[in-house]
Design a protein around this nucleic acid. Structure first.
Length: 681
DNA sequence: GGTAACTGGGTTTTT
DNA sequence: CCCAGTTACC
């Protein structure tokens, strides 16, 4: 660790590369060092899974800072917030505490948009719409347009938002997107087109900015004739992580930030491109970088994470993933072969997964060192039941987010209203919580609120316009919210919001849900102001309810259950992948197109390469026809098409539970109970 | 005209 | 479990 910078390394930001045997270089292999110490020419780092990509990027950041780059002129763009924070912090530690700037594309875009509200035509500020709010707005408009009750069922609001978003992120025409991905919606193309243009107008009118808009506005700012170059010149260095998952909008942004590629570093792995559904084009940024003069390519192939036994499996899958070739070599040695466990059915699969988790735990592995990775959030349903029944603590990542749970959305809506009484989406949601107010009444009241100067200050008028039976509860809610507006501290505001919504949540759902809201209140209390907190949690939502519980206790140990998507970039000593059957991995929805299937293969590759020491794949021989079917009709299922002969050759196949298990799962759907209390009486 | 209560069908992945 | 569509009631 150095304390003061040696004179030899004191250089301007555009100095030539040089090897300084300094803190940032400690423990790097040759390829990583070359990447970290690279000069100002465009750099493309092709990094296979587990090859120390993050290390290389952190070291590069540290090296740049160390050479004298101004921290505020170095920008790191990542895919997930956590990755950015961690890398900036680690690089800062290596570089004498100086921190570069960075975050996800969306959070950096948010900063840019907040800075240039006048240029963008939002003089009074704007609110950020998360996907669920965007979908609420779409719902509101769908009904306004009378598209709800047509003879031909019109797509759901959430689907509409998906389609809209895909058009923007892929830069494709609506007709193309429909043809490619939503053929069953094609007949509604015209209605959708007009709905979409009103949706855009309505967002603009209400100063509402959704995720896609953040990127669109950032790009628009960067494209401005005078402002654009000024913004780009703020940064001498732009580093982009996970380049394979950028969509064409994000690629445009990178191009505008670094028009000649000077100071541009791009890191990623095309075999891990798993966000095609969001408009990601893995090769796009690689081609951009390689098109610049003097571009350098560095390949990281030495794998520090896994044993060769695991990489052998991964390499087979990788070989058919496309993209630039990288073959992973383990530095850790051979290790054990990965196992393929054949199970009688999905129920015994769940039991075996938990058996193995607990056995490893007995052998000394913490639960935190293990993970269960699934393709779709519901694929872990049975495993979760088994985990609960056997008392194994776990946290689930991916799938439904904490913020998307109904009562949490209600709380957030009320909070948004206190912050901005013009937020019609929040009004719509809050009003419908009251008994006697349904969609139609709420819509009429929202119209009235839109017309009002400050609908929350004029709350008595809103109450007067509501149907009689709703008036008393509504007046209590609004009175509370109006009073809460007088508070300035985030903590006091959050408490006020909770008081306002608590009775509604209690009557609509159950008492238990209030506990979640209390956690939300304590999280909000730590924030400086409520509006900032709202924007923050919208752009970067907590990944699981546990994220709000504060720093975990030292003795807290839990298994991770996660979607493969959410597991990207992470690693565990032992990884369990259940449901390795056709229809799950690869998922049935993706089977119809070539691109879909390719992406499923890459997803499988991501799952395999999360494991450090041991990898278990499970395939049940039978699965219920429908995961939630109430009867237990089971059908035989096929092993995943990805597990071909070449792959099986690298696996240890274990035939477990060929026979139907003697007892059903503990805790599962107990229909018969025996009352023994008379015995003890 | 509008709401609540009931019923039947369906569910990929996320910033 | 969540949504959409249907029906019965105000």
């Amino acid at each position: 660790m150095f304390v003061t910078q040696p004179a030899v390394c004191e250089r301007g930001p555009h100095s030539r590369e040089d090897d300084c045997p300094e803190a940032w270089a400690a423990g790097l292999n040759r390829a990583q060092q070359i990447a970290a110490a690279h000069g100002d020419q465009p750099l493309l780092v092709l990094a296979g899974a587990g090859t120390g990509k993050t290390r290389a990027l952190v070291s590069r950041l540290a090296c740049l800072l160390h050479r004298g780059a101004a921290p505020e002129r170095v920008l790191l763009l990542t895919f997930a917030r956590r990755a950015a924070d961690e890398m900036l912090l680690r690089a800062g530690d290596l570089a004498g505490g100086r921190r570069a700037v960075g975050g996800t594309f969306h959070s950096v875009a948010h900063r840019a948009v907040s800075t240039y509200t006048e240029v963008l035509g939002f003089p009074g500020g704007f609110s950020v719409l998360g996907p669920s709010e965007a979908s609420d707005l779409m719902e509101l408009m769908r009904a306004d347009y009378g598209l709800a009750g047509l003879s031909q069922r019109f797509p759901r609001a959430a689907t509409l938002v998906e389609i809209y978003s895909r058009c923007i992120n892929s830069g494709r025409l609506l007709s193309e997107v429909l043809e490619l991905s939503y053929p069953w919606c094609e007949r509604h193309r015209e209605n959708m087109a007009s709905l979409f243009s009103s949706f855009t107008a309505r967002k603009r009118e209400g100063a509402l900015v959704d995720f896609d808009d953040l990127l669109l506005y950032w790009r628009a700012l960067l494209s401005q004739e005078k402002l654009g170059p000024q913004l780009a010149e703020q940064f001498d260095y732009v580093l982009v992580d996970e380049y394979q998952d950028l969509n064409h909008l994000q690629v445009d942004i990178v191009r505008l930030l670094s028009p000649q590629g000077r100071g541009l570093t791009v890191v990623g792995d095309e075999a891990q491109a798993i966000y095609g559904f969001r408009g990601g084009g893995p090769a796009e940024l690689r081609q951009l970088v390689l098109g610049y003069q003097g571009a350098t390519v560095v390949r990281l192939e030495e794998n520090f994470r896994s044993y060769q036994g695991i990489l052998d499996v991964a390499n087979v899958v990788r070989s058919s993933c496309g993209g630039p070739g990288v073959t992973l070599r383990a530095v850790r040695g051979e290790g054990r072969k990965a196992k393929l466990v054949r199970c009688y059915d999905a129920t015994s699969e769940a039991r075996l997964v938990v058996d193995h988790v607990l056995r490893a735990h007995e052998d000394g592995a913490a639960l935190q060192d293990q993970a269960v990775l699934v393709r779709a959030a519901h694929h872990s349903d049975l495993t979760e039941i088994e985990l609960s029944a056997r008392g194994v603590p776990y946290r689930k990542y991916g799938g439904l987010k904490f913020l998307e749970v109904a009562h949490v959305k209600d709380f957030v809506a009320a909070a948004r209203l206190v912050d901005n009484p013009h937020d019609e989406i929040a009004w719509y949601r809050l009003l419908r919580l009251h008994e006697g107010v349904g969609a139609a009444t709420a819509r009429a009241l929202v119209q009235q609120c839109r017309a009002a100067v400050d609908a929350l200050a004029q709350w008595t008028e809103v109450v007067a316009a509501a149907p009689p039976r709703a008036r008393s509860t509504l007046s209590a809610t609004l009175h509370n919210l109006c009073r809460t507006r007088g508070e300035t501290e985030a903590a006091a505001r959050a408490v006020g919001v909770l008081e306002a919504v608590a009775p509604l949540v209690r009557s609509r759902y159950s008492e238990g849900r209030l506990a979640d809201l209390e956690r939300l209140v304590s999280a909000a209390s730590a924030a400086r102001d409520l509006s900032g907190w709202l924007a923050e949690i919208t752009i970067d939502p907590p990944q699981s309810a546990g994220d709000f519980a504060g720093p975990p206790h030292l003795d807290e140990d839990f298994l991770v259950v996660s979607t493969i998507h959410s597991a990207k970039g992470l690693e565990w000593a032992i990884v369990h992948v259940p449901h390795v059957v056709d229809g799950c991995i690869p998922i049935d929805m993706a089977l119809s197109t070539r691109e879909g299937l390719d992406e499923e293969r890459r997803l499988f590759y991501v799952a395999l390469t999360r494991a450090r020491d041991q990898l278990y794949l499970y395939s049940p021989l039978r699965m219920p026809y429908h995961p939630r079917a109430s009867d237990d009709r089971h059908g035989l299922v096929k092993l995943s098409r990805f597990v071909d002969d070449a792959l099986v050759a690298k696996l240890e196949v274990v035939e477990e539970a060929r026979a139907r298990p003697a007892f059903p799962l503990v805790g599962m759907d107990v229909r018969v109970s025996v009352d023994l209390s008379s015995l003890w009486a």
